[in-house]
Design a protein around this nucleic acid. Structure first.
Lengths: 246, 246
DNA sequence: GCAAAAGTGTTAATAGTACACCCATGT
DNA sequence: ACATGGGTGTACTATTAACACTTTTGC
């Protein structure tokens, strides 16, 4: 087997979104820099999950690898949403100290390609590899290392837009879900309130949202019917041309 | 003044779209490789316009620079639409020969960030710099050097989507334009036919499309009224939340 | 006067919006 | 029995889709 060589100017950052039926979360890594000599903690902050690419690896493969390393999941929805290469993106003092401490040239220019991925938080059990990785509510994230806050906002914007026009919400839900869960997802991600009856009227038009003969269990209220999304039906019934807004 | 240093692993490719009231065009460069010794032409093909970035230059600045070098135009609409880093993107025989002939390592990995830009072809006078740059109808482009055909298709897809949901069509037209020109633009880029009356009814709802007291001149038919797009009115009147399609 | 594109209105079907009450379950 | 979220219908308005003829100009 050939030795894997990391490309040192190209990296991939993954914005891993998770939905827990209440809010949108993002997987972040707690980065702690400890002084070599004194053993004291110099700072601690949060970063997106990312890594340099291997020389023989495509960008998408790198993103899938990062995702797999953190979650153990494969075949997860992944979407490239931008490339980030500002000249000052690694120049904040903490980041410079971090690069130096990990033996990298703090003046090197690194371009990062952003991918976001979507999954139901319940799919993931977090207990990984010394690296302290946790879900954080997107709404509560205020700043991140490097330019990762910018990247996160850019991912959010791309996700919102995608959600408005493509059937990707299901990627954030388990296979079987209730209409209220789906509605909540739209409300949380888009930041709007939707009318229950109008939402369901809209759903009723979509042949690819299939009602199952199955109900929620163990809830302290009338159990909701479960639905699933059929990509096959969707592909077959999607209209060829769309309306446009000038 | 500091000497400019090119980054040799990151490049920017510009997909420069132009509209001539009839079809969508793209600026391409005729690449000719001549045998050093014999002076014979080894091959000739087409590439997108692109270049490596300077070390002290942002991606967007690099794209704007490429655009300026080719067209002499500034403040042109520019949109990043993707990063292209497949491991085999430079491995076609012509491309390998080209890299070797221009003294570059044919095995090096280069990541290219794609930007597309929009302008009315009439804005540009082409007569440039030894490099043979010309407009080609997008519909007639069948293949390009490197992975540029893939990049072009990806740009087209991004443009179509943007055109469906944002008011960017005006970037492809002169400041003053007729409704038929605008309609043709939508038809050509989206590949659809639109009904004239319904199109105009829709236009009438958009306050930011401003009818001028001015008409076309020198046309052999009833001259059309000219319109312009007001970004200020658009920004003020755009609705906060949108409808969504699941 | 003729060719060429501009400009204009009605009807029917579909989709969007606003809004309030009863139902099934667990505790 | 009560708290909790599930589930349903109607009236009004706005938007879409289909469709054909007259007007103004240059030649």
């Amino acid at each position: 087997m050939m030795k894997k060589v990391l490309n040192n100017t190209i990296s991939v950052d993954c914005v891993i979104f998770g939905f827990d039926f209440e809010k949108l979360n993002v997987l972040l890594v707690d980065r702690v820099l400890v002084d070599e000599k004194t053993g004291k903690e110099l700072f601690s902050d949060l970063t997106l999950t990312g890594n340099h690419i291997f020389e023989d690896e495509s960008l998408e493969d790198a993103a899938a690898r990062i995702l797999f390393d953190l979650t153990g999941l494969e075949n997860i929805y992944l979407k490239q949403f931008g490339a980030f290469g500002d000249t000052e993106r690694l120049l904040k003092p903490n980041d410079q100290a971090w690069l130096r401490a990990s033996g990298r040239d703090p003046h090197s220019r690194i371009l990062s390609v952003g991918y976001y991925s979507l999954l139901a938080t319940e799919k993931v059990t977090l207990k990984w590899k010394g690296r302290n990785v946790k879900w954080y509510p997107v709404a509560e994230v205020t700043d991140l290392a490097f330019d990762h806050y910018t990247i996160l906002q850019s991912a959010l914007q791309a996700l919102r837009r995608e959600l408005l026009y493509e059937p990707i919400g299901f990627e954030l839900l388990p296979e079987k879900f209730t209409l209220s869960q789906l509605q909540k997802l739209y409300e949380v991600v888009l930041g709007v309130e939707l009318d229950k009856r109008n939402f369901r009227k809209k759903i009723a038009r979509m042949k690819y949202l299939i009602p199952l003969d199955e109900k929620q269990k163990g809830v302290a209220h009338k159990p909701a019917r479960l639905y699933m999304f059929s990509r096959e039906v969707y592909e077959k019934t999607r209209k060829e041309v769309f309306d446009f807004n000038i």
